[in-house]
């Protein structure tokens, strides 16, 4: 064994490998595993913020579309060893997914920012003016 790990590591990668093989058995062998990537969505007073861990994903492999209050995010990550490389440990998963979110409020489609930094996507969507709480002055006659 060229690269040996401590027992915990080994049992982890063994469990991982088993799961991967099970998944492979139920998927077409050539296709990438459809993996759910965890998204977080938070709502502040004037923004909706969505984050997701997408390590290794480049801007070209990421597609974000907004249609009214439906936000769709697609991403792909390929894990392919180069020629002449022998795989000794394989835990990092390839993925390919499309997720659609129904936003909790209407947003200003001209005030959306998407930032991909250190493999983390952060999307900020400013709420539409009409969705912001508005104070109604009361006049007394």
């Amino acid at each position: 064994m060229f690269f040996s790990f401590d027992d915990f590591d080994r049992s982890m990668s063994w469990a991982d490998e088993l799961q991967r093989r099970l998944e492979q058995a139920f998927h077409a062998p050539q296709s990438l595993n459809q993996v759910r990537t965890g998204f977080d969505m938070h709502e502040t007073e004037d923004e909706v913020v969505i984050t997701a861990d997408l390590p290794g994903v480049s801007e070209q492999d990421l597609e974000i579309t907004l249609h009214e209050d439906l936000l769709t995010i697609s991403a792909i990550r390929k894990i392919e060893p180069q020629e002449g490389q022998r795989v000794l440990v394989s835990e990092r998963r390839p993925f390919k997914f499309t997720r659609t979110f129904s936003l909790p409020t209407s947003v200003d489609e001209n005030a959306v920012t998407a930032k991909l930094q250190n493999g983390v996507l952060c999307l900020r969507l400013k709420k539409a003016k009409t969705a912001l709480p508005r104070q109604i002055p009361v006049s007394i006659h």
């Binding site: 060229f2 997408l54 390590p55 002449g84 022998r86 795989v87 440990v89 394989s90 983390v120």
Partner: peptide
């Protein structure tokens, strides 16, 4: 999560460290 690859000249270790 890590990948370890071996070629003739080197070992390559890749680790996902998002954020």
């Amino acid at each position: 999560a890590v990948d370890v690859l071996e070629s003739e000249e080197a070992f390559l270790l890749l680790a996902d460290l998002p954020g």
